[in-house]
Nucleic acid binder design. Structure first.
Lengths: 202, 202
DNA sequence: TGTCAACTGGACTCGCGGTACACTTAGGAG
DNA sequence: CTCCTAAGTGTACCGCGAGTCCAGTTGACA
């Protein structure tokens, strides 16, 4: 990685944790620059404004989450041939992963920005939308595969079922942050897991 | 209501919709005052700073939500004696109520502030915490009553089940905002409803 | 007539985002 | 050895919004 890429990546690390801790607006460029041990001018050399920082942050966050989901559910599939059981294993792995974070999950960059909408340009908003739609597609696909092996007896909205994974994670994170209780998200995921089991196995 | 209370309430109305539309930091006192047709000084006559505005906003929001839940589940209980069916009816009523909002639910003030934590003092954070804990207690109590009539065959974390109502609403709202799709929350609530049904009726 | 509640208006300080631009410094190419 | 470029630094400046201070106004009511 070039020096430029290293600094940029360092800025993004610092920005992400600061933004999740106190919000985007409350995080000053001054403090990001100081933490990265560069000057304010140095910051503007890498990002023309805060919007560009936000966009880069979100892009990186989505890539990381996608990679995490890929690894996790690939691993789950290696552990069990049946798509339903692979999903149940994947959700358990996800819950464990979240439990292993000592101070709880830091929060979701997307949720953080959706509640500060107008600060960001249309590009940032579209990025968020595409990320959520991507996860819907991913999980909907998995649930459809499951439904082939384990026919659903209850009629359900499959798009909404796909969304439910993101929704439970996002909702759990809001509660976890508000409560300051570290295992809140993982408990919610375990309930989702029970739901999936009941839905396809009865 | 006194003139003072009227103005205060007007300011809170304006502030709430602006904050949900674009975030707390992005909402200036200037614009709130202008919309309320008072001066900046007038605003500071009612609230000593933005923190006090946030606190009042959240307090009012929690009161309103509590009242909404009370009305809704009382009504549901009038419609059915069995606590499980009352819960299912209540969730359906909640979903319908959310669907009837033309532009989707405006979002949750609590979620909005939890993602902008450090801006607010400890009092505001504690207020958020107590609200979520209050809802946990409310729904946990309802689920325990249900479990007496319909014994659970699956072992579940009852605190987390109580939290699940708030979690599904919060998560759904994040997705609804990010996607711009109005019926997202209500679909998620319908999935929660299916889960409750499967959990207690099999 | 005086008092008080609910304001208005203006001046000021600070911190932050953002712009502009001249200058520096380390490392590689010629 | 020199020149060039990438990756910065430092300084000055603008405008905006939060928050403070304070003197003055206006309408209702005792």
């Amino acid at each position: 990685m070039s020096a430029k890429q290293e600094t940029k990546s360092l800025i993004l690390d610092i920005a992400e944790s600061a933004v999740l801790a106190k919000g985007f607006e409350a995080t000053s460029i001054e403090e990001i620059a100081a933490a990265a041990e560069i000057s304010r001018s140095g910051f503007f050399y890498h990002f023309k404004d805060k919007n560009e920082l936000a966009r880069a942050m979100i892009e990186r966050y989505i890539e990381n989450e996608d990679k995490l989901y890929n690894d996790l559910f690939d691993r789950a599939r290696q552990l069990h041939d049946d798509p339903l059981h692979a999903m149940l294993i994947g959700l358990k792995l996800l819950a464990e992963l979240l439990d292993d974070m000592p101070n709880g999950h830091p929060g979701c960059v997307i949720a953080s920005t959706t509640y500060q909408d107008r600060l960001f340009d249309a590009g940032v908003r579209e990025l968020n939308r595409q990320a959520i739609l991507g996860w819907r597609k991913r999980f909907r696909g998995m649930f459809e595969e499951i439904a082939e092996a384990h026919p659903l007896r209850v009629e359900v909205n499959m798009d909404a079922l796909g969304d439910m994974v993101s929704s439970v994670v996002e909702g759990g994170l809001v509660l976890e942050r508000a409560l300051g209780e570290p295992r809140t998200v993982s408990s919610q995921i375990m309930h989702l897991r029970t739901y999936i089991r009941l839905l396809f196995l009865g």
